[in-house]
Amino acid sequence: MGDALELMGLTKRFGEKVAVDGVSLHVPAGSFYGLVGQNGAGKTTTLSMAVGLLRPDDGHAKIFGQDVWSSPEQAKALVGVLPDGLAMPERLTGREVLTYLGLLRGLPKATVEQRARELLAVLELDEAEKTLVIEYSTGMRKKIGLATALLHAPRLLVLDEPFEAVDPVSAATIKTILRGFVAGGGSIVLSSHVMALVEQLCDHVAVIDDGRVAAAGTLDEVRGGRTLEDTFVELVGTPGDGVEELSWLTS
């Protein structure tokens, strides 16, 4: 079996700034792949290009061998995406969002209804039955986003900061769902800047720094004998240097 996601030389410039500079990654099928990097390292830009939400200046992205840009229909049917900070159809309830999106994906109505019911129950969103998405809290938004990503039973999940602003109880729920997804043969790519979380969940990891891949491979290959955090800090920066205390806070 080939790669679930293959990125080849993805490049994106915004003005003078090269946000992503020739990123190539291989995400093996069945792997739980973590993408770590500082804020602004290019994680979101890379993932957006990987799934077809942002047109790269150069390079290609393939999902199970299907090119995202030349055969988008096939590629996009295989992937579920949770982008970070994008809007939803805000004036629908959670159930309406899932039902309508499922129908738009071409699923039969009975299937859509059943999946929507189960997803809402598992993600504990069914109590907010009459609440419009615009009134959701940040954590609820993440959960309904995850539900839309799972709805059409994709084989690859691409999740941008899925645990940001999610409370610990919901995070545990999400982790269980994601582990189950991988155990069932699915593949996941997620981005995060919480090292502990990536170490806990992922079996593969790539460190992105300044738009480039600083290291990639299995978790053990990348971190060696140390913690991921130590490796990460060594790869992307030098701690302690040039950081001064805010003297006026302590006086």
């Binding site: 799934v51 939400l53 995406v81 159809p89 999106l101 071409g106």
Partner: peptide
Amino acid sequence: MDGTALWLTLMTPGA
């Protein structure tokens, strides 16, 4: 008026 909810349209080909 829908803002970035456009991403869902992009990710749902065929509709």
